[in-house]
Design a binder for these strands. Structure first.
Length: 313
DNA sequence: AATAAACTCAACCGCCGATAT
DNA sequence: AATATCGGCGGTTGAGTTTAT
């Protein structure tokens, strides 16, 4: 048997919070804290709400030092930089913007930044429809370009696209599965951003596995990534790593191009779990203009993607 | 000035891994 | 060991507001 139910879902209040409810929640948490138990909190605080609802209200609106209002250009740049690297991991992105919540950032991206960086002008229905067609064409062009870039016009298939978007940061894996195609971080992140295919998308067709990866890249910090495996992690460093593997890949050695450091914490770009390797710098530290270029790449833009240096579109 | 369309954002929903029973 | 909830997350919704016609 499991636990007892947290609340009577049929009888708890839903919808917008009243000022009185806000005050009750604030005062209770101010005095007693959350106690690490959101489910028990509403009853103790005298609120007819589900614990989940209290948690959300507190985290997104009531807790101290929440920043509301306009995002600065620097914040925008950070959001886009991280989005280009890791996709829609809003909680991770929020952790790099003090005072901002994941919900805020998600809303801001969906309503403003996406349009800004994809070159979409908010407008009427007709234009919206045109934009949809335009975006579909962009997607088609992007992948046509990506594939013709390295394969001389090979036909693109849906699994190929998912693979590039999902595993693009591991060029060796990509090239093993799609012979002749040398994926880069740039092609993968562009693919993910434009198709809105998060990196974890391939989970549906792959198996989850835990494995140990061994860094075997060049340890020279000044090297460029033309070899596809430039990193500052010490040669031979073992890294505990959860990742989604295709059949036949578990346990093999993988290059680790995109282990990244943000805000003093190390993450690998797939799991975003603090890693155990040495200090590394992300090769994807895009400038504002580079991000814009990356996300808004059209047919001609895609052809300029630099396979040798992913940090340069 | 009226109203239809578009936009914003707080809140909900459902999924997943961890954990309690 | 099995089962159900918890906590956290990303995706989606819809009421209220703003803008365009």
């Amino acid at each position: 048997m499991g636990r007892t139910p947290c609340c009577d879902k049929a009888n708890v209040k839903k919808g917008p919070w009243s000022p009185e409810e806000d005050t009750k929640l604030k005062e209770f948490i101010g005095k007693h804290g959350t106690g690490g138990n959101w489910i028990a909190l509403p009853q103790k605080a005298g609120l007819n709400r589900c614990g989940k609802s209290c948690r959300l209200r507190w985290l997104n609106y009531l807790r101290p030092n929440i920043k509301h209002g306009e995002f600065s250009e620097e914040e925008e740049r950070i959001i886009c930089n991280l989005f280009a690297n890791i996709g829609s991991r809003w909680s991770i992105i929020a952790s790099h913007l003090p005072g901002r919540t994941d919900n805020d950032i998600k809303n801001y991206w969906n309503t403003k930044l996406k349009k800004k960086f994809l070159g979409i002008v908010p407008s009427q229905k007709k234009q919206q429809h045109q934009l949809q067609l335009q975006q579909q064409q962009q997607h088609h062009n992007l992948f046509s370009s990506l594939f013709s870039l390295s394969q001389g016009g090979r036909n693109t298939t849906a699994p190929d696209l998912e693979l590039v978007a999902g595993l693009g940061e591991f060029p060796s894996l990509i090239s093993q599965r799609i012979p002749g195609f040398a994926s880069t971080s740039t092609t993968a992140t562009a693919a993910s951003a434009l198709l809105q295919v998060p990196y974890r998308q391939p989970q549906q067709m792959m198996e989850r596995s835990h494995t140990t990866m061994i860094a075997f890249g060049n340890s020279d910090p000044s090297c460029n990534s033309s070899g596809g495996s430039c990193t500052q992690i010490s040669y031979g460093t073992e890294l505990e790593y959860d990742y989604d593997v295709g059949r036949g890949f578990e346990g093999e050695q993988i290059s680790i191009d995109n282990y990244a450091t943000y805000g003093g914490l190390e993450y690998n770009s797939r799991t975003l779990r603090p890693g155990g390797g040495g200090h590394v710098e992300t090769p994807l530290d895009y400038t504002y203009e580079e991000i814009k270029h990356l996300l808004s790449s059209n047919n001609s833009g895609c052809n300029t993607i630099n396979n040798d240096n992913p940090s340069l579109p």
